[in-house]
Write a protein that binds this DNA or RNA. Structure first.
Lengths: 112, 112
DNA sequence: TTAATATACATAATTTTCTTATGTATATAA
DNA sequence: TTATATACATAAGAAAATTATGTATATTAA
C-alpha cells in the first residue's frame, strides 16, 4: 500500500470514508486523492486497491457502474445502504485504535 | 492480535516501546501491560506475540535471559543497542502514520 | 478433590492483506 | 517514438495476523 507497513487493515476504512464524502469515485481517482491528502506519504498500489474494492463490492458495501470517458473505461464505486452504515462503525473503530495506540506509545502524555 | 484488525503492523512498535520504558519484560507480562493500559481494548494473543518476540530477537533488536520464578520459567526480553536505536524511528513512523490517517479520515479537521 | 482459572511458554495450519510483478489499452507530452 | 499519465486487472509470493493446539505449574472455587 505504501512505504509504511503500519497501514494494514486501514485501506477499507479509507476507501469507505472517501466514498462517504464524494458520492462516487473510480479507482485511479482514489489513489490520486490519497496521494494529495497525505502529501505523497501514502501511495496506494493497484495490487492492494483493486482487490480491496472488489472485496467491498462482493461484501455488498459498494456498488459500481462503468462509464467511458475519453475512450477509457472508468469504473465508478459508490456506497450501498449497507456500506453507508458500515462507514460510521469503521471510523469509530479507527478512532478507538488511534487512542489505544497513543496510550501504548505514550504519544500524548497529557492530551488535555 | 485483538478484536481490532487495524492494529496489524503495530505490534513490533508496541513491544519495543514497552521495553524502552521497562528495561526488561517477559511475554506474559507484556500481554497484561497492554491489557491494562488499553482497558482491555487490545488483547494480545500468544500466537501473535511469541512469534513477534522471536523475530525481534532474530533481527538482533532484543536479547533474552531465562529465569525460574515459582517453578515456572520466565523468558525476559530486553532491548539491544540496535533495538534501542530502532525504537525511536519506529515511534516516529507510527506518529506519522496516525497523522496521515487523521487527515484521510478527517478525524481532526482543525487540530489547532 | 477436582475442575476452572491464571500463569508461562511454544508452534502449526490457515487466513488476511499486503508487495511486487505483470498484462492490456488509450492519451499526451517530450 | 519513447516516456509518462490514465485506467483497469490478476497472479505469485511474503508478512503478519487468527485460531487451534500442546505442555506444564499454581491457585482458587465448587
Amino acid at each position: 500500500m505504501s512505504n509504511n507497513q503500519l497501514i494494514k487493515g486501514t485501506l477499507q476504512t479509507i476507501i469507505l470514508k472517501l466514498l462517504e464524502d464524494n458520492k462516487q469515485m473510480y479507482g485511479y481517482e482514489i489513489t490520486q486523492k490519497v496521494k494529495e491528502t497525505t502529501s505523497g506519504e501514502i501511495l496506494l498500489t493497484e495490487g492492494a486497491l483493486y482487490p480491496a474494492l472488489h472485496k467491498l463490492e462482493a461484501d455488498g458495501l459498494l456498488e459500481t457502474h462503468a462509464q467511458v470517458v475519453d475512450n477509457r473505461v472508468r469504473k465508478y464505486y459508490a456506497l450501498t445502504e449497507k456500506g453507508g452504515k458500515e462507514v460510521t462503525s469503521k471510523i469509530e473503530e479507527a478512532q478507538n485504535f488511534i487512542e489505544q495506540l497513543n496510550l501504548l506509545l505514550n504519544l500524548k502524555p497529557g492530551l488535555q
